[in-house]
Design a protein around this nucleic acid. Structure first.
Lengths: 154, 154
DNA sequence: GAATCAGGTTTCAAATTGCAACCAGTCTTT
DNA sequence: AAAGACTGGTTGCAATTTGAAACCTGATTC
């Protein structure tokens, strides 16, 4: 009896990630959450997305473990959607997307929103891919490998 | 006469990025390109995507400037899709997505594909968001600001 | 207690996706 | 040089997903 190799999702972490949070609205919702948005109506107002779509996305994001539902912090009977640890760790993804967009999709003087460090008020350092010993890596400096049971596959 | 504030796309770099490369297939195509895939049929085989969808995505990725079309390097009359500088700079986005997936979407012993540094054969360093002076930043250490003509907006 | 707001669900039309068939140039094989 | 296969698509159609709007229930405010 052989165990099913992939009960859910692909073997590629990129593919599997995109399956759970990889649509436009989910990432925009998460971006808003990083700005402190927690309530359904606030997400809806900020994004302008249809309510049924927002409800559906929030539901799957909760199922996937990116958001928790909690009673609202203002004591009302309503709920709040707050990022879990798993959700907060999406921060580098959103920041790298933001930095790419700032660099390649805006003209220098064009109006944009930027992310600043609270302490210094300065823009963030550009994210760079580095090897385990700190060397900066280009795409061509890396290769993919299949890892089966923690061991390299032929 | 007032200039139109946003002729195309949102003011948020995250939103604008997701508009151009933010669907599942586009990012998967780019991921494959980082693995050296260049030909239409190779993308199609690797991704299992419908040919009309692939054609449509490649077309917009070329229009957006992420890919260039070049004559095939093997001397045949066919074409190749190769990443531009702009396209190669999506690397941190793909790597951050990959690292999040590896960490949160796989059980420890589960078969997966990993990205290794050619030089050392080791996994990459986890991407971290840092301030301009190198301090590691959490989402709550940052704030968004609107930048109009290079100047902070009220 | 009436009106309003939060957080949805339902309905239906429109857009997108995916599959399969087809097609025009290339390239290889004989 | 003709036959067959491969490359890089396009076209048509069915199925799924998306989006706008109306509606609804419980909580809150007036």
């Amino acid at each position: 009896m052989v165990e099913d190799a992939s009960p859910q999702g692909s073997e590629c972490p990129v593919a599997r990630t995109l399956e759970s949070i990889g649509d436009r609205w989910s990432l925009m919702i998460i971006r808003d959450a990083f700005d402190g948005i927690r309530r359904f109506s606030e997400f809806q107002k900020s994004l302008g997305v249809a309510k049924n779509i927002l409800a559906s996305r929030l539901k799957t994001l909760v199922e996937v473990g990116v958001f928790d539902i909690r009673p609202a912090s203002d004591g009302s009977a309503y709920k709040e959607y707050v990022l879990t640890e798993k959700g907060r760790e999406i921060f580098p993804v959103v920041v790298s997307i933001r930095q790419w967009g700032e660099r390649f999709l805006f003209k220098p003087q064009e109006t944009r929103s930027v992310l600043l460090d609270n302490a210094s008020g300065q823009p963030l350092m550009p994210l760079e891919v580095r090897s385990s010993n700190g060397q900066k890596l280009e795409p061509s400096d890396c290769h993919r490998m299949r890892l089966v049971n923690g061991v390299k596959d032929a």
